[in-house]
């Protein structure tokens, strides 16, 4: 198998692998296409596949923490913006006093979006928040 690092930059070395979240291949994102109305907002969004590929590349470059972040990012690609912002808000200190709410959020993300790594991050937060007294109203 080839070293994923050889694919980098994808836009130059493997443009065929760069497909937007909507499935539009990179080469179709041209000015003509934009002008004729053939490009929508979802077409300029990164796909989970591209992020996983970037994770492989990062890992191959010896940057495993960055790779894990890209993989968490890949899990969030299909998560709607309002759910992302709501989850972020719930993770902020003192927003949630009942740990069950966070646990339920983790479960929902795992179930509905296959976001296992994100869910694990939330579960880990719940344990620490409880021990450090962060599940307490701040305002």
């Amino acid at each position: 198998m080839t070293d994923p690092l050889d694919l980098y930059p994808i836009s130059e070395n493997a443009p065929e692998l760069a497909v937007s979240a909507s499935g539009m291949p990179l080469e179709r994102l041209t000015l003509d296409e934009v002008l004729s109305g053939g490009v929508a907002a979802a077409d300029i969004r990164i796909s989970a596949e591209a992020l996983r590929l970037q994770a492989d590349i990062a890992r191959s470059a010896g940057r495993d923490r960055l790779a894990l972040n890209f993989e968490r990012g890949a899990e969030l690609v299909s998560v709607p913006q309002d759910v992302i912002l709501e989850t972020y808000e719930m993770l902020r200190p003192g927003r949630v006093t009942d740990p069950a709410l966070l646990t339920a959020r983790a479960e929902m993300l795992r179930r509905d979006y296959g976001a296992a790594a994100i869910a694990a991050l939330i579960d880990e937060a719940v344990a620490v928040y409880a021990r450090r007294g962060l599940l307490r109203r701040r305002y």
Binding site: R45, I46, L51, N69, F70, R72, G73, A74, E75, L76, V77, V79, I84, T87, Y88, L91, R92, P93, G94, I118, L121, I122, E124, A125, V128, Y129, R132, L134, R138
Partner: peptide, 26 residues
């Protein structure tokens, strides 16, 4: 410090989540 972090209205987990969210939007 933990106190400064919490006063800044975040935790390492909320920030790690946000970092992943930015990646998810390219």
């Amino acid at each position: 410090t933990e106190a400064a972090f919490v006063d800044g209205d975040d935790t390492p987990w909320s920030k790690a989540f946000l970092t992943a969210a930015y990646a998810s939007r390219g």
